[in-house]
């Protein structure tokens, strides 16, 4: 497997704006928050990352991942009332 590019989370958000990403965390700050990671999979919808996430954790037990939407977590104009 080729080595994946390690980026800051901010860089990942910028490079993959508008996509869902599966990130393998690689670096953390003193509080344990991820600061860098490598994008393992990406997709336009949330469901597309389910199998890649399961597969990655099976292949690499003990890793930490962060799945997120690269962009606003609630889109402009959507008022949340749950």
């Amino acid at each position: 497997m080729s080595e994946k590019l390690e980026l800051t989370l901010e860089e990942i958000e910028a490079h993959h704006a508008g996509e869902w990403v599966l990130v393998e965390e690689t670096t953390w700050d003193e509080a344990g928050n991820p600061t860098k990671g490598a994008v393992v999979a990406r997709g336009n919808d949330r469901q597309s990352l389910v199998q890649p996430t399961r597969r990655l954790h099976t292949q690499k037990p003990g890793i930490k991942t962060f799945v997120f939407y690269a962009g606003p977590k609630v889109p402009e104009g959507l008022v949340v009332v749950l």
């Binding site: 965390e25 928050n33 991820p34 996430t53 954790h57 003990g62 890793i63 930490k64 991942t65 962060f66 799945v67 997120f68 939407y69 606003p72 977590k73 609630v74 889109p75 402009e76 104009g77 959507l78 008022v79 949340v80």
Partner: peptide, 19 residues
């Protein structure tokens, strides 16, 4: 996020992080 709500990173089962 939009409307002022607060989203927070949460880690599940020591391995999986989400907003």
């Amino acid at each position: 996020a939009y409307g002022g709500v607060l989203v927070i990173p949460c880690q599940l089962n020591e391995a999986y992080r989400y907003w």
